[in-house]
Structures are given as C-alpha cells and as structure tokens.
Design a protein around this nucleic acid. Structure first.
Length: 243
DNA sequence: ACGTGCTACCCAAGTCGTAT
DNA sequence: ATACGACTTGGGTAGCACGT
C-alpha cells in the first residue's frame, strides 16, 4: 500500500506464517517495480520485518529506508555489559570493549584464507583470552567464559540504520501512516465483508483479495476525481449501501 | 596454548494439531 | 469451542573439538 495516497499497489496471499508473509513483501516490491516502474523510498512494517536478512535486502539490495523495529535479542538479563556497550570501529573492522581492548575476527593469518562468516550469517568477534583474564571488569563482562565474544550479523549495517531511523521524527510519523493501512484492512473486513473467504486455497484468496483491492482503489479514485458535494454525508452513506 | 567454527541449548511470540 | 503442548522462527550464549 502506498501510504501517501492510500492506494493498494499489489496483492500477494500467503499462508499465515511469519516468514512467508515477510517474503511476500519482496515479491510485491519487485513486481510493482516491473509493472509500474515504482520503487518505494521507505518501507513501514512491524518487528516481523526487522530480521537481519530482510533489513539487508531492503538497505543493501533495494536502497529502501527501513521504518521497521529491529528484531534484537541482544539485551542481557544478568547485569553484564550488553553488546551496545561495545564500540564498533568500521575502519579497523573490530569492536572495542568497555576496558578499551579489541575484539577481532582475525587474530592471526591462515594458510587458506577464511571468510569468517558462520552458518548463521554472522562474524564472531572475540577478545583475547589474555586480555580478559587480566581484566578487572571480567565479572561484569564474561563471568562464565574465558573471553567475551560478539556475533555480528553480516547485515549489521542495515540493522544499525534501522535503529537510527527509529529515533527520528520521521519514524513517529510513519507510525501514524500505518493507521491508513489499518483503516483499509478494517474497511475490507467490516464494509466489504471480507472477514472470511468464500473461495478455497491460495488462488481463491488471491482472487478475492485482488477484487477487493480493485474495489478499494476505485473508491479512492472516485473520492479524488469527484468535486466536493453539498450533501456529501447523505450521498456517501447511499454509496456505501450500493457498494 | 589459544584462536576458530560449529553445535546445543535458551528465549519469546506466534501457529498448528490433538484431545476433550 | 476450548485448552494445552509441540513446534517454528531468528536472535542470543556456552562449550566442545579441531587447527595452527
């Protein structure tokens, strides 16, 4: 949905699965690009869209600003230093711990050079065991392990961008714009009676939703095209009954 | 001895499947 | 219709085996 105008640009049904729902966004964004040569400047969504691969796709592949909360479970519960207390040095590609020591992914060279990217698409940055053993802050940092380590997503730059956007006024506005989307869904359910589908299967859902979206867009078009009328309220309610 | 990469396991929020 | 446990998801940490 284009929130600036309340126009539905594409429809893609999925099973009620978080990953499937999120993946369908890629399908729709790319299809709208092909059909209408339109690319969104930013994308508004909830935390389900805040996973590292999704943010990476938005920022790195599409150049879309993510107005999305970051899926982040890095906060610790045991009163030890959280990851956010470690400063990232983009130039040196290493972290700096609260005691000022480095966390690196390449402490030494290898005969066969390695990418250091793990199966979880992260790079593990570790402090030196020697530094941690001698550190007076060890109890506040890594009480249960020989050294502190941080798994950094290969999409961390995109995650960081989403964190920064979340602090902006623009993000607060996007929260309000999301209401326009919710209003369309509410209208679909209550007025167009689409709280339950009649046709079975994904194809049935696609047909019903596509027709409903067309109806929504025609309503919008009528609103934009017709000049304001003196007895607008009465006419509007009649139109709804016909609809 | 120590760095590296993998696996096991935990968490929270959600869906799915089954028994009642 | 409802309750409840199993399972899924992506993120985290701890610890082990292996390579240098």
């Amino acid at each position: 949905i284009d929130v600036a105008h309340g126009v539905i640009l594409d429809v893609e049904p999925t099973p009620a699965h978080r990953t499937a729902e999120v993946e369908s966004t890629k399908t729709m964004v790319e299809r709208v690009e092909e059909r209408f040569d339109l690319t969104p400047h930013r994308l508004i969504g909830d935390t389900a869209y805040g996973t590292a691969p999704m943010l990476g796709w938005m920022v790195e592949e599409k150049g879309i600003e993510p107005s999305v909360p970051v899926w982040d479970k890095s906060e610790r519960r045991d009163d030890t230093f959280p990851c956010s207390d470690f400063l990232w040095d983009a130039g040196k590609k290493e972290y700096r711990c609260p005691a000022g020591k480095a966390l690196k992914h390449n402490w030494r060279p290898f005969k066969k050079p390695r990418s250091h990217i793990t199966q979880a698409d992260t790079v593990v940055y570790r402090a030196s065991q020697r530094d941690c053993t001698a550190c007076p802050m060890k109890a506040k940092c890594c009480p249960n392990t020989p050294m502190r380590k941080i798994a950094r997503s290969i999409h961390e730059d995109a995650r960081e961008m989403a964190r920064c956007i979340r602090k902006t006024v623009q993000y607060q506005q996007s929260r309000c714009e999301r209401k326009k989307v919710e209003m369309l869904f509410a209208h679909l359910k209550c007025i167009l009676r689409l709280d339950r589908l009649r046709l079975r299967g994904l194809n049935g859902a696609r047909d019903e939703f596509t027709l409903a979206a067309a109806v929504q867009n025609l309503r919008r078009l009528a609103k934009l095209a017709s000049p304001p009328r003196p007895f607008g309220g009465q006419i509007a309610s009649t139109a709804q009954e016909i609809g």
